[in-house]
C-alpha cells in the first residue's frame, strides 16, 4: 500500500492516503517543514519542490502521482557536506528574504529556472518566477538570480 518515492536522494515508503497533497506528506509525514503552505490552490508557489527536476506546486499534486519519482525540497539543496547551493549563497549576498515564508519556494523555482536556462534573461525570469511575495522582495530575487548566473546586478529595461 505504501507509496515508494525518493526524497532528497533517500528512498522512502509513504503511508499517507493517496489523495493527500504531496505538500502535507512532506510537511507532516516526513517533518520537512521548509516547504510551506500558503494558499492550497497553486496560486502562490510557497510549496514549490522539484519532482524529477520540474518545479512543482506540491499543494496541488496528490502523493499518488509522485510514486516512483524523485523529489527535492529546500532541505535537499545543500551538498552532503552542508555547503549551500550557489543560489542560496546568492540569496544571502543580496539579502533577499524579509519575512522569508515564501523564499523556499522562490529558491526552488529559481534553481529549476537556472538549471533549464543557464543564464536566464529578464523575460525568462518574469515568465518562470510567478511565485508570490507579499514583502515585495522581487527586485532582490531578480538581483540574486542574475548574480548566481554571473550577470550584472542592474537590469536594463528593454534588454530582455
Amino acid at each position: 500500500m505504501a507509496i515508494q518515492t525518493s526524497i532528497n536522494g533517500k528512498a522512502v515508503a509513504l503511508s499517507a492516503e493517496p489523495d493527500t497533497p504531496l505538500l502535507w506528506v512532506i510537511r507532516e509525514e516526513l517533518g520537512l517543514t521548509g516547504t510551506k503552505f500558503g494558499c492550497g490552490v497553486a496560486a502562490c508557489g510557497a510549496c514549490t519542490v522539484h519532482v524529477d527536476g520540474e518545479p512543482t506546486r506540491s499543494c496541488s499534486v496528490p502523493v499518488s502521482e509522485v510514486a516512483g519519482k524523485s523529489i527535492t525540497t529546500i532541505e535537499g539543496l545543500k551538498s552532503a557536506d552542508g555547503t549551500l547551493h550557489a543560489v542560496q549563497t546568492a540569496w544571502i549576498a543580496a539579502q533577499v528574504p524579509q519575512c522569508g515564508y515564501c523564499q523556499s519556494g522562490q529558491i526552488m523555482a529559481a534553481v529549476a529556472l537556472i538549471e533549464k536556462t543557464g543564464r536566464p534573461s529578464d523575460a525568462q525570469i518574469d515568465a518562470a518566477m510567478t511565485n508570490l511575495c507579499r514583502c515585495g522582495t522581487y527586485p532582490r530575487i531578480r538581483k540574486a538570480i542574475r548574480a548566481a548566473t554571473g550577470q550584472a546586478a542592474v537590469a536594463v529595461e528593454g534588454a530582455a
Binding site: 520537512l32 517543514t33 545543500k78 539579502q95 522569508g100
Partner: peptide, 21 residues
C-alpha cells in the same frame, strides 16, 4: 550589517508558527 535572521530563511530551517509540532 547582514540581517541575522536571513541564513535560516534560505535553507528551510527557520521555524514559523505553521511549522511547530
Amino acid at each position: 550589517m547582514q540581517r541575522l535572521d536571513i541564513p535560516a530563511k534560505v535553507d528551510g530551517s527557520a521555524q514559523y508558527g505553521m511549522d511547530f509540532a
